[in-house]
């Protein structure tokens, strides 16, 4: 089942001589349960692509369908609500809310929806993330790895259609990086969670089911295509 379809997506900055084609007519689709890694050199447009897919940036033209919904035809509020329920965002710099502890940060997206998370599900995710002893801690009391695990928990809690992870290990040491990758793979296998991950690290990218390579805003390689 197609969970994501990107159709002729473009993102241009500037005009005339200063025109920068960050994303240049990109089209592809992702099946439910796939673990996709998007790779590319610095400036290739991978973060821009992810932000366009996540609905946190606006494309110059083109469409993005998530779960058959054209997200850019939605009004602002509808998109917000859609995003909180169907898209989980994991950032390179964690971006936890500083005044909320681990538990509160994880349940934040559910709370925004006025939806009370079932205790079992919460404990399951917390156990998965290994954060049982850190529930009352505030972000400034956590290590980088713990913060990133919290942000993964935040992304997982609503069982979104899609998890978008932008360089999730970019700020971590190799041990923590491996832990995070394991967690992502685990949630992909266990919950059939569709994950799209940006990384510049080819080794980590190989952990994914599929690799899409971007160069100058265009897809130059797609292992799916290759296989096909």
């Amino acid at each position: 089942m197609e969970i994501l379809k990107v159709s002729n997506l473009t993102k241009y900055y500037g005009k005339g001589d200063a025109l920068v084609k960050a994303i240049d007519n990109v089209s592809f689709s992702v099946e439910k349960g796939e673990f996709v890694a998007i790779v590319g050199a610095s400036g290739s447009g991978k973060s821009t692509l992810m932000h366009l897919i996540g609905g946190v940036d606006k494309p110059t033209s083109g469409k993005v369908y998530i779960d058959n919904q054209d997200i850019y035809s939605m009004k602002d509020d509808a998109l917000c609500i859609f995003r909180r329920r169907q898209i989980g965002l994991i950032y390179q710099f964690y971006n936890l809310i500083p005044i909320l502890n681990v538990k509160e940060n994880i349940t934040l997206t559910s709370n925004l929806d006025n939806h009370k998370v079932s205790k079992e599900k919460l404990m399951e995710i917390i156990k998965l993330l290994g954060l049982q002893d850190r529930l009352e801690h505030l972000p400034n009391q956590l290590s980088g790895g713990e913060q990133q695990r919290t942000s993964i928990g935040r992304a997982l809690i609503t069982s979104p259609a899609l998890i978008l992870a932008d360089e999730p290990t970019g700020n971590l040491d190799s041990k923590a990086s491996l832990e995070i990758m394991e967690l992502l793979k685990l949630s992909n296998r266990k919950y059939k969670q569709t994950i799209i991950m940006i990384t510049h690290n080819l080794e980590l990218a190989r952990e994914a089911d599929r690799i899409i390579k971007l160069e100058d805003g265009k897809i130059v390689e797609d292992t799916n295509e290759d296989i096909k």
């Binding site: 996540g54 946190v56 602002d76 509020d77 917000c80 609500i81 859609f82 995003r83 909180r84 329920r85 898209i87 965002l89 950032y91 971006n95 809310i97 500083p98 934040l108 997206t109 925004l112 929806d113 935040r154």
Partner: peptide, 13 residues
């Protein structure tokens, strides 16, 4: 930043 993160997580206006 905090506000933007909240918005990106799906907090409506």
């Amino acid at each position: 930043k905090e506000f933007m993160v909240l918005k990106s997580l799906g907090m409506t206006k």
